[in-house]
Computed example of a mutant assay.
Amino acid sequence: MATPLSPDRLLAALRAEGVRVVEHPGWRTRNRNHKGAWGPVHGVVIHHTVSTGSASSVALCRDGYSALPGPLCHGVIDKEGRVHLIANGRANHAGTGDDDVLRAVIAETPLPEPGENNTDGNARFYGFECVNLGDGKDPWPAAQLDAVERTSAAICRAHRWGAGSVIGHKEWTAAKSDPRGFTMEGLRSRIASRLKSAPGRPTGPVTPRYQPFPGAGFFATQPVSPIITAMGRRLVAEGCSAYRVGPGSTWSEADRLSYAKWQRKLGHTGDDADGWPGRASWDALKVPYTT
């Protein structure tokens, strides 16, 4: 049993664990406390979003939808390993689950298979949504899994919990299948190892290195380059994929069609959305630097 962390304590715990935090406007007071209890808290629930793209996933989890109003979690963990804080307090993420599972989490004993849905999980768990389609094929980049581990460990350390206080949504209720694509047993093992040592050093603002615009002529030569692969992965992450296979390292029509989707997402039309990269749209895409 624990009193929920204040916004300042949560932020401090995450940063002390080396988490790359993005604070979104209003996160400190955004919650659904008017709908029910928030606390005492007993653990952390990990989810996947069934969506693509950082910005769109954050917006979905912040605002929710007609059948399930937001916020839908406390933070969104994107594929680049950033944790977007969007809420503090009760959130619509866990729903109802099994009281036997809750007792096992509190005792940090092996989890039973969830059966009944008779307990309000939104009052008892922090929730983090991870950007992933949840189809078992969408990759989990190392940076994202590291952020899931660090975020979970930070909250456990702040409350003096062990790794047994971190569960997947599918372990809370049989009605859910998330997260899919890695095992919770493996995650808890990594969290347990991390908790045995001092937290990671605090991290300040991170200035990532992005690939400079290689010039319009670069793409006209149908290049074979890791830059094309990195670009394609960013387009997929932003929900602008026209790929059937890949992306790969050779510039192709699928790359052009995907890039056209990105240009349209930025609001471009006509010749400005023909799929051939320009400096402004390239800089906005933030392609990671590669050699």
Rank of each mutant, 00 (worst) to 15 (best):
L14F: 10
P71L: 07
T250Q: 12
D274M: 15
G18W: 01
L235Y: 10
R256V: 06
P179W: 07
D272Y: 10
H47T: 11
A94M: 04
A37Y: 05
V101G: 08
G215P: 07
A55C: 06
C156A: 11
C156W: 11
V44H: 13
S152L: 08
A55I: 06
A280E: 07
G89N: 08
I227R: 11
G248F: 03
D146W: 05
P212R: 01
A192Y: 04
F213V: 03
A13E: 00
P223R: 00
W262D: 00
F182M: 08
K137T: 13
T109L: 13
S57H: 11
L14S: 01
D255T: 05
P4Q: 01
G95H: 02
E149N: 11
L235T: 10
A273H: 09
W38T: 02
R234K: 15
M1K: 08
T3F: 02
A174K: 15
H84V: 11
T291F: 14
P212N: 03
A273W: 08
G53H: 12
S189R: 15
Q222N: 15
G168M: 06
I191A: 06
P199M: 07
T52R: 06
S6G: 06
V41Y: 14
G127R: 00
E129I: 12
A280N: 05
W172E: 15
D98A: 01
I227G: 13
R190L: 15
K35H: 08
P277R: 04
W38I: 00
A59D: 09
V101H: 11
R234M: 14
A254R: 02
V41T: 12
V58L: 04
L266E: 04
R32T: 03
G278N: 04
L10F: 13
V44N: 14
T221Y: 05
D274Y: 10
V131N: 01
L266H: 06
T119E: 10
T229F: 01
N132P: 10
A67E: 01
T203Y: 03
C61L: 03
P226Q: 03
M231K: 02
R279W: 09
W27N: 04
D120Q: 12
G115L: 02
N132I: 14
A143T: 07
G162N: 12
T151N: 03
H48V: 14
I167T: 11
A230H: 09
H84M: 09
R15H: 07
S189G: 14
P179M: 10
V58E: 06
H42C: 09
A260I: 01
C61V: 00
V76E: 10
Y289V: 01
E185R: 15
A16W: 06
W161D: 05
